[in-house]
Amino acid sequence: RRKSKRKPPPKKKMTGTLETQFTCPFCNHEKSCDVKMDRARNTGVISCTVCLEEFQTPITYLSEPVDVYSDWIDACE
């Protein structure tokens, strides 16, 4: 008699959501930077609500707010 092989359980999909508020690289306030994605103009704007620092970068249809933040961090270095 042959043993029946069980199929492995399906893999769980990533359910965690990406951050939309970030720590400002200038004033170091946590969750003080908000990202606005202007898909019509293909630009992402991130601004700090505390020190009013602002950064704008081009985006694509695949871009997420975390991509705008990482572009800002890269531009600071």
Score class of each variant (00 low, 15 high):
residue 9 P to V: 15
residue 20 T to P: 10
residue 72 W to D: 01
residue 2 R to H: 05
residue 58 P to Q: 12
residue 51 C to D: 00
residue 21 Q to F: 04
residue 67 D to M: 04
residue 42 N to S: 14
residue 4 S to A: 08
residue 9 P to L: 13
residue 50 V to C: 10
residue 65 P to K: 13
residue 34 D to W: 05
residue 61 Y to R: 15
residue 28 N to M: 04
residue 69 Y to L: 13
residue 7 K to A: 12
residue 39 R to A: 06
residue 25 P to A: 03
residue 27 C to I: 00
residue 9 P to M: 06
residue 44 G to Q: 02
residue 53 E to N: 05
residue 3 K to A: 11
residue 8 P to Y: 05
residue 64 E to T: 10
residue 48 C to K: 01
residue 64 E to N: 11
residue 35 V to L: 04
residue 1 R to W: 01
residue 22 F to T: 04
residue 74 D to P: 05
residue 22 F to L: 08
residue 30 E to N: 08
residue 10 P to A: 12
residue 15 T to I: 13
residue 12 K to I: 12
residue 29 H to P: 02
residue 75 A to L: 10
residue 2 R to E: 13
residue 2 R to P: 05
residue 71 D to C: 11
residue 14 M to W: 10
residue 74 D to L: 11
residue 20 T to G: 12
residue 36 K to P: 01
residue 47 S to P: 01
residue 67 D to N: 12
residue 11 K to G: 09
residue 19 E to L: 06
residue 33 C to M: 04
residue 33 C to G: 02
residue 74 D to C: 10
residue 43 T to R: 07
residue 48 C to P: 02
residue 52 L to G: 13
residue 3 K to R: 08
residue 56 Q to H: 02
residue 10 P to V: 12
residue 72 W to R: 02
residue 60 T to G: 07
residue 40 A to C: 05
residue 29 H to K: 15
residue 57 T to K: 15
residue 46 I to S: 05
residue 3 K to S: 12
residue 24 C to Q: 01
residue 60 T to Y: 06
residue 36 K to D: 03
residue 35 V to W: 02
residue 9 P to T: 11
residue 17 T to P: 13
residue 41 R to M: 04
residue 41 R to C: 08
residue 30 E to W: 06
residue 50 V to K: 10
residue 51 C to T: 00
residue 42 N to R: 09
residue 48 C to M: 00
residue 37 M to G: 01
residue 20 T to H: 05
residue 8 P to T: 15
residue 55 F to Q: 00
residue 58 P to L: 07
residue 39 R to C: 02
residue 62 L to G: 11
residue 31 K to I: 02
residue 21 Q to H: 14
residue 58 P to K: 13
residue 75 A to Q: 13
residue 38 D to E: 10
residue 55 F to G: 03
residue 31 K to W: 04
residue 63 S to M: 13
residue 43 T to A: 07
residue 14 M to G: 06
residue 29 H to Q: 05
residue 66 V to N: 14
residue 73 I to A: 12
residue 40 A to R: 15
residue 26 F to N: 13
residue 44 G to M: 02
residue 27 C to P: 00
residue 6 R to D: 09
residue 17 T to E: 11
residue 5 K to C: 02
residue 17 T to C: 07
residue 52 L to N: 08
residue 24 C to Y: 00
residue 50 V to M: 07
residue 58 P to F: 12
residue 11 K to C: 02
residue 62 L to Y: 09
residue 55 F to W: 10
residue 62 L to Q: 15
residue 7 K to V: 10
residue 21 Q to L: 11
residue 68 V to F: 00
residue 71 D to H: 14
residue 9 P to H: 08
residue 56 Q to Y: 04
residue 58 P to S: 07
residue 51 C to P: 00
residue 20 T to I: 08
residue 24 C to S: 02
residue 20 T to V: 09
residue 38 D to T: 03
residue 13 K to D: 07
residue 34 D to Y: 05
residue 50 V to T: 11
residue 43 T to V: 09
residue 7 K to Q: 13
residue 22 F to Q: 03
residue 22 F to A: 04
residue 64 E to Q: 14
residue 48 C to N: 00
residue 22 F to H: 08
residue 73 I to W: 04
residue 17 T to F: 13
residue 8 P to G: 07
residue 11 K to W: 01
residue 49 T to M: 05
residue 15 T to Q: 13
residue 14 M to E: 12
residue 9 P to A: 12
residue 24 C to N: 00
residue 74 D to W: 07
residue 45 V to M: 15
residue 3 K to V: 05
residue 6 R to G: 13
residue 56 Q to W: 03
residue 50 V to R: 13
residue 69 Y to G: 02
residue 57 T to V: 06
residue 26 F to G: 11
residue 12 K to D: 07
residue 68 V to A: 04
residue 53 E to T: 02
residue 43 T to C: 02
residue 8 P to F: 13
residue 6 R to N: 15
residue 58 P to C: 14
residue 60 T to R: 11
residue 31 K to M: 09
residue 62 L to V: 13
residue 31 K to H: 14
residue 51 C to V: 00
residue 39 R to S: 15
residue 2 R to L: 07
residue 41 R to Y: 04
residue 67 D to A: 07
residue 21 Q to A: 05
residue 33 C to T: 08
residue 76 C to Q: 14
residue 18 L to N: 15
residue 61 Y to M: 15
residue 65 P to V: 09
residue 28 N to G: 09
residue 37 M to S: 00
residue 62 L to E: 13
residue 2 R to K: 14
residue 12 K to C: 03
residue 61 Y to A: 15
residue 76 C to D: 14
residue 60 T to I: 04
residue 74 D to I: 13
residue 17 T to K: 09
residue 3 K to W: 00
residue 46 I to A: 09
residue 75 A to V: 12
residue 47 S to C: 12
residue 29 H to W: 04
residue 47 S to I: 11
residue 59 I to L: 07
residue 62 L to F: 04
residue 25 P to E: 01
residue 70 S to Y: 08
residue 58 P to W: 06
residue 39 R to G: 05
residue 36 K to S: 03
residue 41 R to D: 12
